[in-house]
């Protein structure tokens, strides 16, 4: 079998062109290996080889981002490689960001596997570890041998399209993706084993590390509600009777937008809930309990709010991924703003 083709990206420093004074070096491609590529080729053995090296100055890349990206992608495409590799960048900030940016871009544009490596505190790591495989390295080039040892086997696996093991097994930074697997022991036994270790003060490994939690600060209070247009938005699943858009009872893939200008009151005949996560009996009897149209009409009449917006937006929060909720809201928040809505009442269940 012929060797897999790799194109390698490095900066001006590792290419031996120069330091900071040469950081404005424009993208250039050379046949074969340059600098650290030699160590990689040795480690790749019969599996793969670097066929070309792209060199670009760190300042040039970051200051001429679009142009640099386009140029590098063009150069990479020329060689039709099985894998694109950048770095390792260790703790060099601009180099790390460049490695992350260019691997991400090549993956998107050319749809080929990519890999890079850097120190965990390199700003490029946080920016790109969720989208590309970044192998964790030491903070200086003294860690080159170790970096090559970790990056090369993973690079070959990625290039071959083989199944990739866990971050611990393959030394890349966790990408934040959860995948199911069947463990050797059942969950209860794993819990008992973990408790025994925790009680003894021994090292134990949680199966799920607590995330940094997203907290949303409330906006400042609305100055004068009597002049405000107020909209209702709910994750409580209130929909027109028979759920015309088939919003899922759990793990919603969509949201609904419905006209309530003709309603002073929601009833059993007109509305219901599609939500599968709570006792629906009371919401089905009277959907105002979740989406308070009746009360807002009263407040409208009393002049305590300016007006109730003619549309409400709705989805089921039940089992719905945070990423989906964010995407829904990003879309309809723009519509709310365009429609001149001043305030939103969000109801859950």
């Amino acid at each position: 079998m012929s060797k897999l083709k790799v194109v390698h990206y490095i900066n001006q420093f590792f290419a031996g062109i120069g330091g900071e004074e040469k950081a404005d070096y424009k993208p250039e491609v050379r046949e074969g290996v340059v600098g650290p590529g030699m160590a990689f080729n040795k480690k790749f053995g019969d599996d793969a080889e670097i066929v070309a090296t792209v060199i670009c100055g760190d300042s040039y890349f970051n200051e001429n981002l679009e142009e640099a990206k386009a140029k590098v992608i063009e150069m990479v495409k020329e060689y039709d490689p099985d894998l694109f590799m950048a770095g390792p960048a260790f703790n060099a900030g601009r180099y790390g960001v460049a490695c992350g940016t260019i691997t991400d871009a090549v993956k998107e544009e050319l749809n080929i596997p990519v890999i890079t490596g850097m120190y965990e505190e390199n700003p490029g790591a946080d920016m790109f570890k969720k989208s590309v495989h970044i192998v964790e390295t030491r903070n200086s080039a003294a860690g080159m041998r170790k970096a090559v040892k970790s990056m090369a086997p993973l690079a070959v696996k990625l290039a071959k399209g083989e199944e990739i093991g866990s971050p611990e097994e393959e030394h890349y930074m966790p990408m934040g993706v959860r995948k199911n697997y069947f463990a050797e022991k059942r969950g209860a036994e794993r819990a008992v084993d973990m408790l025994v270790k925790k009680l003894k003060g021994e090292e134990f490994k949680t199966e799920f590390a607590m995330p940094d939690f997203d907290r949303v600060d409330a906006n400042p209070a609305v100055k004068d509600l009597s002049k405000s247009k107020v909209a209702l938005v709910t994750s409580g699943g209130i929909v027109p009777k028979d759920n015309p858009d088939h919003i899922e009872s759990s793990s919603a893939s969509k949201y609904g937008k419905y006209d309530i200008s003709d309603f002073n009151n929601l009833t059993e005949e007109t509305h219901e809930t599609a939500h599968g996560g709570y006792d629906p009996v009371y919401a089905n009897e009277d959907s105002d309990r979740v989406l308070p149209v009746d009360v807002l009409r009263d407040l409208e009449k009393e002049g305590r709010i300016g007006e109730l917006h003619k549309f409400f937006y709705t989805t089921t929060g039940n089992g719905t991924a945070v990423a989906s909720s964010k995407a829904f809201a990003e879309e309809f928040a723009k519509e709310l703003v365009a429609d001149g809505v001043d305030a939103v009442i969000l109801t859950s269940t």
């Binding site: 966790p174 199911n180 022991k185 059942r186 969950g187 794993r190």
Partner: peptide, 12 residues
């Protein structure tokens, strides 16, 4: 969630 099964999840 009583741990009846072997199924679990890992971070990748």
């Amino acid at each position: 969630e009583l741990g009846f099964n072997k199924l679990s999840a890992k971070g990748y």
